[in-house]
């Protein structure tokens, strides 16, 4: 029962993340949505590791290494964004649509 609830909650968190990163135009909100997906995956991993397998060191190592690396990647992206934010290009990092832009201009060309 408990692991079912954890799994369902993490799936809901995953769906929130997917919807948010496709829907919101603001780069901040996209990054927050990505955190939701990441946390959902980590909750799954740790929940399964503890409740199904009685803790496997392999899963913990996976979580440790991959979370550190993903945060490194995100850190670099946000660092770049931060370094590019100066007076006359603020708000330039808010996309007009979500992460993917479903427009005919990008697809076929003008």
């Amino acid at each position: 029962m408990n692991i079912t609830f954890i799994f369902l909650a993490s799936s809901l968190l995953f769906l929130i993340g997917v919807f948010g990163s496709l829907f919101f135009g603001s780069v901040t909100k996209i990054i927050i949505s990505l955190q939701c997906i990441l946390t959902a995956a980590v909750i799954n991993f740790l929940g399964f590791a503890q409740i199904l397998y009685g803790t496997s060191v392999w899963a913990v190592t996976f979580v440790l290494i991959s979370v550190i690396l993903i945060f490194l990647f995100q850190f670099m992206i946000v660092f770049y964004l931060n370094s590019n934010t100066y007076q006359y290009q603020s708000d330039g990092f808010d996309f007009s649509s979500g992460l993917y832009y479903f427009g005919i201009k990008d697809w076929l060309g003008e």
């Binding site: 901040t28 979580v63 979370v67 550190i68 995100q74 850190f75 931060n82």
Partner: peptide, 19 residues
Amino acid sequence: LSVPILLFMSIFYLFELKK
């Protein structure tokens, strides 16, 4: 895990403030 999270959060907050 809280160490990379805090590092990331601090730069993220700085970016948001600057924006």
